[in-house]
């Protein structure tokens, strides 16, 4: 294994941990707003680390560019959808959870 392989393993594992944490948050957090918060961590950071880990393994810049584009699109869609869900929840009268 080369240095970039070790780096890939580290990035992919960390990305996987973010997805795991995000999933736990989605299942365990008390209300829709905190769950969205957990989910965006998985989508943004988890997917970003996964894409970075995979980009180290590709042969051409074009493929790395496509991977990066996938991450940017997921960021854009994730941010918008989270906002829409949160706004919809507020409109339905759901109050943010307080301890």
């Amino acid at each position: 294994m080369t240095t970039s392989d070790y780096l890939s393993v580290a990035l992919l594992t960390t990305g996987g941990l973010f997805f795991l944490a995000g999933t736990f948050g989605l299942l365990r957090f008390p209300d829709v707003f905190t769950r969205l918060h957990a989910l965006t961590k998985a989508d943004n950071v988890g997917l970003g680390l996964t894409v970075a880990g995979l980009a180290l393994q590709v042969d051409s810049w074009a493929v790395a560019g496509k991977l990066l584009l996938i991450w940017l699109l997921a960021l854009l869609a994730g941010a918008t959808v989270s906002y829409l869900i949160a706004q919809g929840a507020l409109r339905l009268g759901i109050r943010p959870w307080k301890r």
Partner: peptide, 18 residues
């Protein structure tokens, strides 16, 4: 019922050409 708002509008402006 409600106006879609700036966020959805911006998303569609960015995504539709793509």
């Amino acid at each position: 019922e409600a106006a879609p708002g700036l966020v959805l509008d911006t998303l569609s402006r960015l995504l539709v050409p793509l």
